[in-house]
């Protein structure tokens, strides 16, 4: 198991590092952008826009978690499937469920660290310029986007592992729909009542990933 963890970490490390840098640069840009706003506009007008008008000064990061999850899943599973490595791994003396969970733990853990850092950076940047209530609100708003990162990771994993083309397409439509739900809100705090349901749907994707894994292992077709 330890060897499996190590193998996955060694494989993911470069991409994870790149994603860390990319997300870091994005948050740096967000801070520069915010600083710029406060240098060229009156702070009271920015408060008005952020509160009453509902302008999201951090909307540039809306799709960053989605891309992060998508790229991480591709980096982890695409070479496994295309180079036939996964089929070899499936013959290791480890249960199929344990093996899959190990893969997912590494991927989801790495993603969680990236997205947690992103959320912390967002909180810090907003709290630097606005009272804490604005930072709390930003975190609630960005939570749905962050969930989209996990949906993308699990969804792309399913799509990549699925051997049948028809099912690949169906998974893509459903996962795409779930990602769409995570990005529906246009104003701050608007999606707060949706979050428990979105979290439940995202959690349901974890057992759902086993569906293509079993089909991959036992050669399912559709």
């Amino acid at each position: 198991m330890r060897a499996l963890f190590l193998k996955e970490w060694v494989k993911l490390r470069p991409v994870w590092g790149l994603l860390l840098v990319a997300n870091g640069l994005l948050m740096l840009y967000l801070w520069i952008d915010m600083r710029h706003h406060f240098r060229v506009e009156h702070a009271e007008m920015l408060y008005y826009q952020a509160n009453r008008i509902g302008r999201l000064f951090y909307s540039d990061m809306r799709y960053a978690p989605l891309l992060t999850g998508l790229l991480l899943a591709l980096a982890q599973f695409w070479p496994e499937v295309t180079k036939g490595r996964l089929r070899l791994s499936l013959h290791l003396p480890v249960g199929l469920a344990t093996l899959t969970l190990t893969y997912l733990t590494i991927g989801l853990g790495g993603l969680a660290v990236l997205l947690l850092l992103e959320a912390l950076a967002l909180y810090g940047i907003i709290a630097l310029y606005f009272p804490i209530e604005f930072a709390n609100s930003a975190l609630v708003t960005a939570s749905a986007w962050i969930l989209a990162g996990f949906v993308a990771y699990l969804g792309v994993t399913m799509i990549v592992l699925e051997p049948g083309r028809g099912r690949k397409l169906f998974y893509s439509v459903i996962v795409g729909g779930l990602v769409w739900l995570c990005h529906l809100a246009q104003h701050y705090g608007q999606a707060a009542p949706l979050l428990p349901g979105l979290i439940a749907l995202t959690l349901l994707l974890i057992p759902a990933v086993f569906l293509p894994v079993f089909r991959f292992r036992y050669g399912g077709r559709s």
Binding site: A97, F170, Y171, I174, G177, L178, W180, L181, L201, L204, L205, I206, P207, A208, V209, F210, L211, F214
Partner: peptide
């Protein structure tokens, strides 16, 4: 058991997403 639970999980997600999207 596991494939059954996996299928049920994905069917639930699919039905919910379609009930909004369609």
């Amino acid at each position: 058991m596991m494939p059954l639970a996996s299928r049920f999980a994905f069917l639930s997600i699919a039905i919910l997403v379609m009930a909004i999207g369609l």
